[in-house]
Simulated assay, not measured.
Amino acid sequence: MIAILQWTTLAVCGLVALARIPSAVRGENRSLFGIFALMTLAILLSIEAPYVAIDQALGGINLANLLLRFVIFGAIFFLGIRIAKGFGAAGTYRLITGRPGILVLLILSALVVAVFFLMDTEGSSAGLSTVYAKDDRHMLLVEYYGAAGRAYPAFVGVALIPAMVKAIGSRLPVLVKVAALLLGVGGAAIGLSLLFPFIPADWGAMRFVVNYTAVLCYIVGLALIWIGKVRQRKPLAGTASFTEK
């Protein structure tokens, strides 16, 4: 079931990214194509088989996992900017791109790198399962590493929720309000990822469900806004930024 969810999410994100290529070639909103491309790469790096193949090419010391963390950071940063601008959430935009948001990004990036190099990361395995199983020290370090990696996406995702709630109750087109609902659910799911250390071992599959729910909600939400623009052939009220170059 988890494998089906992973490959289905990869297929959906990859197809949406491919569909954006013609517009990107014309110079239309290339940042949106970049978001889909980064999210596709992140999903690819989270699946065992491609992860191991890529990591082996990088030396077999789980550098692919470190790459995954920064791909996610980049995707969520640009996604946060697009959503905040698109829904006119000036305060959220300033929070993400201003000094507080950049400081949070830099601190968490430094923590991710520092904890990674405190571990003996030899042995390619998605989710660092091999590293986790080495001893109690590595078990704890992997938990810290994962928490630092989840914190920034959660910061951005939760920051966007108030703007999505406001959009749902507005007079925006129904398609855009559905998109806002999905984007809000995605942000809430990312926020819930901070609770992963408290999830019982028997419920481990819930981590995958929460993560991929967030990704799918973001992909479909952004795609709905794009579809709405194509259908109307003009910028949607409150969503013009999604169509900017």
Rank of each mutant, 00 (worst) to 15 (best):
I81H: 08
R82C: 03
R82P: 02
R82I: 11
A84Y: 00
A84C: 01
G86N: 06
F87V: 07
G88I: 04
A89M: 05
A89N: 04
A89I: 06
A90N: 04
A90C: 03
G91A: 08
G91K: 09
Y93M: 14
Y93F: 14
Y93W: 06
R94Q: 14
L95G: 03
L95N: 01
G98Y: 02
R99N: 09
R99L: 14
P100W: 00
G101L: 03
L103M: 09
V104T: 13
L105F: 03
I107M: 04
S109A: 15
L111P: 01
L111M: 14
L111Q: 13
V112W: 13
V112N: 13
V112I: 14
V113Q: 12
A114Q: 11
A114Y: 15
A114E: 12
A114H: 12
V115G: 03
V115F: 13
V115H: 08
F116V: 02
F116A: 00
M119C: 09
D120V: 01
T121V: 09
T121Y: 02
E122A: 11
E122Y: 05
S125E: 08
S125N: 12
S125I: 07
A126S: 15
A126T: 14
G127E: 06
L128W: 12
L128N: 11
S129C: 04
S129N: 13
S129D: 15
S129A: 14
T130I: 06
T130V: 10
K134V: 12
K134P: 07
D135Q: 03
D135I: 03
D135P: 01
R137Q: 11
H138N: 13
H138Y: 04
L141I: 05
V142Y: 05
E143Y: 03
E143T: 15
Y144S: 02
Y144L: 09
G146W: 10
A147R: 10
A148F: 15
A148S: 08
G149V: 02
R150K: 13
A151Y: 07
A151K: 10
A151S: 14
Y152G: 08
A154K: 09
F155S: 07
V156A: 06
V156D: 07
V158W: 00
V158A: 07
A159H: 01
I161C: 04
A163G: 10
M164W: 07
M164Q: 10
M164I: 04
K166Y: 02
K166D: 01
K166I: 00
G169F: 07
G169M: 03
S170M: 12
R171F: 04
L172W: 15
P173M: 04
P173T: 04
P173K: 01
V174Q: 14
V174K: 12
V174L: 13
L175H: 05
V176S: 12
K177N: 03
V178T: 08
V178H: 00
V178K: 01
V178A: 06
A179H: 08
A179N: 03
A180D: 11
L183T: 12
L183N: 08
G184A: 05
G184P: 06
G186N: 01
G186F: 02
G186L: 06
A188C: 09
A189P: 09
